[in-house]
């Protein structure tokens, strides 16, 4: 059993939890993820390690409530326990060479996985320009944290309630136009359409771009092949070969299609869950 030590509500749908998992905390590196189960009948879901504290033995996760499992997780409070919590899984992200200038792009809950990478780059003495975006101001997370580790921070909202009115790619395009040559690398994490848009954009500027993929997973150790994606024409298992890949090599269409495999079932699970909550049948 893994104890939740803190819980913060970051926005209506985004929550942060610090979970006691000393073995995982000892090894966690930026780019890696964990898999958890809320309860005995629960699904195994992957979440990025947003932060880790070796001394306290804790891992921070930040998640968006999108379906049954993340919503159920959201009902837990500090002091409650998770049934399973395993990691750190996946490869750590390789840091770019020291002199480099990096642009980090985080969309929605994707800001959470981007944050530890920016922090690691910042701690390694690198200058990072960050762009973060969300649908609306209330959904924007980790703004202060990101500002603290970035040389510049650009904020965008789809509805214009904060910062630039529009997509992260608009801002990224301006930056690329201005100082395209100086930029060595771009790291982008967010919803699939965002990562694909970023990838298409940076391809035309020929700037190396890393994305952290989020296919459906089961074990997270390379034994099921559920997480397979085509990268550079080859099949890779995201959980062990990734989750960070060269964006320009990723077959985003296939990935998007595969992530829709269980749409119907996800709807059923969510409806059942919400109904139980209304009728007070579940807990």
């Amino acid at each position: 059993m893994f104890k939740i030590v803190t819980k913060k509500v970051l926005s209506e749908v985004n929550k942060l939890m610090e979970v006691e998992a000393p073995l995982v905390a000892r090894k966690a590196e930026p780019g890696q993820f964990i898999i958890l189960r809320v309860h005995e009948n629960g699904e195994r879901i992957p979440l990025t390690i947003a932060d880790s504290d070796k001394e306290k033995g804790t891992i921070t996760i930040i998640y968006q409530e999108v379906g049954k499992t993340t919503k159920e997780l959201g009902t837990l409070e500090a002091g409650d326990h998770l049934c399973d919590f395993v990691g750190p899984l996946g490869k750590a992200m390789e840091l770019p060479s020291a002199s480099g200038r990096v642009v980090a792009v985080g969309g929605g809950v994707g800001i959470a996985p981007v944050y530890p990478k920016v922090k690691a780059l910042h701690n390694a003495g690198m200058e990072v320009i960050s762009i973060i975006g969300a649908q609306t101001a209330d959904l924007l997370i980790l703004e202060d944290e990101m500002r603290a580790v970035s040389k510049e921070l650009h904020v965008c909202t789809d509805d214009g309630t904060k910062g630039h009115h529009g997509f992260v790619t608009d801002v990224l395009k301006n930056i690329l136009e201005e100082k395209g040559k100086e930029i060595d690398e771009i790291v982008a994490v967010g919803p699939l359409p965002m990562m694909q848009a970023v990838s298409n954009l940076t391809k035309s500027y020929d700037v190396k771009t890393l994305v952290s993929l989020n296919p459906i997973m089961v074990d997270g150790t390379g034994m099921c092949g559920c997480c397979r994606v085509t990268v550079g024409g080859e099949t890779k298992f995201s959980c062990v070969d990734g989750p960070v890949f060269d964006a320009h090599q990723v077959d985003f269409e296939e990935l998007t299609r595969r992530s829709h495999t269980y749409l119907e079932e996800e709807k059923i699970a969510l409806e059942n869950f919400e109904q139980e909550r209304i009728s007070g049948g579940g807990n």
Binding site: E43, C224, E265, A269, N272
Partner: peptide
């Protein structure tokens, strides 16, 4: 599916009891 995924979803994750168990299979 790989057989591993197909069988793991069904046996370990009990997808045959979906939606009482959360993991689906298609």
């Amino acid at each position: 599916y790989s057989a591993n995924e197909f069988l793991t979803r069904t046996n370990l994750m009990k997808a045959y009891l979906f939606p009482d168990w959360d993991t689906p299979i298609k």
